[in-house]
Amino acid sequence: MFSFGANWGVLVALELFLAGLGAGAYIVGSSIDLFGEKSWRRLAFAGALMSWPMVGVGLGILIIDLGRPELNTPSHLMNVFNNLSSMMTIGSTLLTMFLAISLLTTVFWVFKWHESLLRSIIEIAGISLGFGVALYPGLLLAFARGRVFWASPFLPWLFLVSAICTGLALVGLAETWLGRILFPFFSTGTEDAMIELSRTLRFGILAKLLILTLYVISVWQTKEVLTVLMGRLAPFFWAAVAGGLLIPFAIEEYGERVLKETGLRPIIYSRISATISFILVLLGGILLRYAILIGGQI
């Protein structure tokens, strides 16, 4: 219904979003584990635990979207690995490897092999693959020569930054609502981590705004830009900008100012404002992908 006759519609937008989200959550979680305090580990575990289901569900949606279950048997789907010069083959390979690594990382967490050097090595490999998975949707679109609206080198970076922002939001959301329920075996003391997460998110939102602006400038000559900025897709695009970037930034910024001025735990970290901010970032991520994906095809 919302695909406007495009060949790649809502389900593909959702898949691109979920792939980025899973990769982003993993990158955020594993970076916290590698470079953060030990007391922040609950967030690190949340990142790993959330990553593979997102990517897995995304892949499932993609297979459903192919819409030919009688033809696309598992062995037939293996054909997707045939052409190593195709970005889709490279992306599928990255996704498969990333799924394996993120699952393995979760196993390490579940069995509490916390101090293992092997886990750090796996996490570094997973972060590298995560960057590949987060960049791949943008590269997939940028390499499609028939779509001038996607033909920008800024697009992969826009999707990467968006993936990290949504990953931060997902980890934050998990910590806000499920932290103590799902991960009771980790010690508390994640408030500092949440403050860092909020700061990183604000920086990510600014970076995303900058790259989005540069992307739009780079495709300004195309007629599709009118459809996206002022035409049928404008409500989705501007909702992604206002709702997914500006409002969450304002919420996070307000929280930071309160923290600076009063030194108190700011309102931002109250469950409701944090939840609103994180959910808006997630919605913004999917709306932006949708607007760009559909915009390139109509």
Binding site: R68, N72, L77, N82
Partner: peptide, 20 residues
């Protein structure tokens, strides 16, 4: 026999030719 129906060829064609 090899096609999985991903439709990437449609976007990859510089002349907008393949139809699904």
């Amino acid at each position: 026999e090899k096609c999985i129906g991903c439709k990437y060829c449609i976007s990859g064609c510089p002349f907008n030719v393949p139809r699904f």
